[in-house]
């Protein structure tokens, strides 16, 4: 009896020390996933997530402070990729899926001040001083940084119109699952 108690206690103490030692000795200084996640982010540092740029968001995601759905330009594709990377289930219901938006410039109001151009993280706005600016649809990530910079409110975010080529079948609604929720 005594022997059993002693031996288990000793074993516990020994293993505890071993674990404590290992935790200090092999401590990971920086989370290796931060860099990997950072590589997956759009890299535009648009700031829509509320974190200081894409590296900040990557650190937050790796630390579990931010959800994988934190990046609006990345959308669902990035969220699922991140969830797969982290081995967690992505709750996609929160993704703002009102569809991607892009900036448009009302030509009649634009005064050609070039402020939006300086702000665009992807150089998606073309134009020159005193010339009407225009947005290249393909390059716009919809970060919306340009909207606030415009002195005449000529820049607006507008949803990308759905075309036949981009239309996606909605998920069938299973009545049973709904009843469960």
């Amino acid at each position: 009896m005594i022997a059993a108690i002693l031996s288990v206690t000793l074993l516990g103490i020994a293993l505890g020390f071993a674990l404590g030692f290992a935790a200090r000795k092999f401590a990971v200084e920086t989370d290796a996933r931060v860099a990997e996640i950072g590589a997956m982010m759009p890299g535009t540092n648009c700031g829509q997530c509320g974190y200081p740029g894409c590296p900040g968001a990557a650190a937050a995601i790796a630390a579990g402070e931010a959800t994988v759905t934190v990046c609006p330009p990345g959308g669902k594709a990035l969220a699922t990729a991140l969830a797969a990377k982290l081995g967690i289930a992505a709750d996609l219901s929160g993704v703002s899926d009102e569809g991607p938006k892009i900036a448009t410039i009302a030509e009649e109001i634009c005064i050609g001040c070039c402020r939006c151009i300086k702000e665009c993280p992807t150089d998606a706005i073309v134009g020159a001083a005193k010339q009407i600016h225009a947005v290249m649809r393909e390059a716009c990530t919809g970060c919306g940084n340009c909207v606030d910079r415009c002195p005449t409110e000529a820049v607006k975010m507008e949803p990308v119109p759905v075309t036949l080529q981009h239309w996606v079948w909605p998920k069938p609604q299973a009545k049973v699952e709904q009843a469960w929720a």
Binding site: G75, A77, T141
Partner: peptide, 30 residues
């Protein structure tokens, strides 16, 4: 319907992926 949805969703994700990569390239270029 399930399969249509999944195929469409995958295609949309593929497009979004391409877009993200393009955005990343543009940001790097900037």
């Amino acid at each position: 319907h399930y399969f249509n949805h999944a195929k469409g969703e995958l295609a949309a994700q593929g497009r979004a992926q391409l877009r993200n990569e393009a955005a990343k390239r543009l940001a790097a270029a900037r």
